[in-house]
Amino acid sequence: MAIDQVPANRRLVEELYANGYLTAAARQAALEFLKPHDQWSLWISRLLLIVGSALALSGVVYFFAFNWSQIPPIAKFASIQIGIVAAVGAASVWGFTRTHGQVLVVGASVLVGVFLAVFGQVYQTGADAFELFTAWSVLILGWSVISNFAPQWALWLAVTNVALGLWWRQAALPSEEMAFLIYAYLALLNGMALAVREWGALRGVDWIARRWTRVLLTIATLLALLVPASTLVMADDPTTSMLVAGIMGLIGHVVLYSAYRHLLPDAWAVSATVLSGCLVLDAAAYRILSSALGDNTAATWLSLGLATLVIFATAMVYLRSIAPKLKAAHD
């Protein structure tokens, strides 16, 4: 590695100091260069805002939990609705593009869910949980669109995933033949969100381009692809939905790998996809070995252990070989 590619950080400064290459004054100057005091003040300020908001909001939630049975319905509704209006009103004043406003919109979105839960409880609507989550997802979609805030979208996506999963169990009521299709739907939902994220990032939308959004969405998509793919390779007599979702899972792995290996090089995303692929291969190895070795379970365990090591070792070597290319492309 060339010297101009080596990152300068606190660990390096401390090691230079520890080995006598820097004096105490030089160490202090280096730390000031890396982390000027204005950054520390800004960071402390943000820390106070986030921790303070989280504690204060939790205190309110605890208070409601303590007094829940004694609070009359009108007070429950009024307090939650006032909270929603106040949060959205304050966010409008501060502006949806500033951190204060964006955090307040997330708070309002959480309160919408609380409101729907209380509404169902007070009026005994008999609504299924999926209806609550669907309504919640629809009601906060508008705020998500105008918030330009990745955590707000993460909340919306989490609520929508739960709504979809509950709908499948409570309303769709699939037959055994169709049960695995939910994984295809979840993979499509999270995969589309990932595609939108990449589209936005390529067009220079800063707030969506944070690294964690890609990691989160890639993992969510891979989980929905991994389960049906590994189930398919282990099944003796797959159902129609297992076949459809499983094939989609296998194709999805190839698509994700191609995208993050060639189009948008990213070591973490490629590694996550390769790891998921290794687990599918391991499942296939188990099926092959248990069929071939029959009742000799000791031999099955031993050969499966060795097969696991071969599969993952090959993956490790491959990932190490492409790591410099991915890094160069990413830089």
Binding site: V51, G52, S53, L57, G59, V60, Y62, F63
Partner: peptide, 21 residues
């Protein structure tokens, strides 16, 4: 600790941190 006490503790602490901010 009782829920009411926890609620008060969290709200006061959160408020103090926000005041600092």
């Amino acid at each position: 600790v009782s829920l009411l006490m926890k609620s008060a503790i969290l709200t006061v602490t959160g408020g103090a941190l926000l005041a600092g901010r």
